[in-house]
């Protein structure tokens, strides 16, 4: 069951900060979305193989042959902050 606590946990994992009202609102919305999907639980699937995807095709594979990479200036062009050829992000150290 989706409650405010779960919404807060998911927001933390995604580094999102939500106000109290937003938490309440999203808990309500997510609960109703999941409740809708949960109707599928009524179907008896005990004899059905778990399926990740419904498309019948096989995964296309690629030969191990290089293709050109983006030029660094192009690659970096959408970075909000770029320094010396790197993307600069707020200091994060995984403790």
């Amino acid at each position: 069951m989706i409650d405010k606590k779960i919404v807060q946990h998911i927001a933390d994992l995604s580094r999102l900060s939500l106000s109290d009202e937003e938490t309440e609102e999203f808990a309500h919305q997510l609960a109703s979305i999941l409740g809708y999907v949960e109707q599928l639980d009524k179907v008896d699937t005990s004899n059905v193989e778990p399926t990740a995807l419904v498309a019948p095709a096989r995964d296309p594979l690629r030969q191990d042959e290089p293709t050109p990479s983006l030029p660094p200036d192009k690659l970096l062009q959408n970075g909000p902050k770029v320094k010396n050829g790197y993307f600069a992000v707020p200091k994060v150290i995984n403790q």
Partner: peptide, 14 residues
């Protein structure tokens, strides 16, 4: 790769 010790920001190389 992330570099933490060269700048006030962390630097990312893809």
């Amino acid at each position: 790769k992330l570099i933490h010790d060269q700048d006030a920001d962390s630097l990312f190389d893809v």
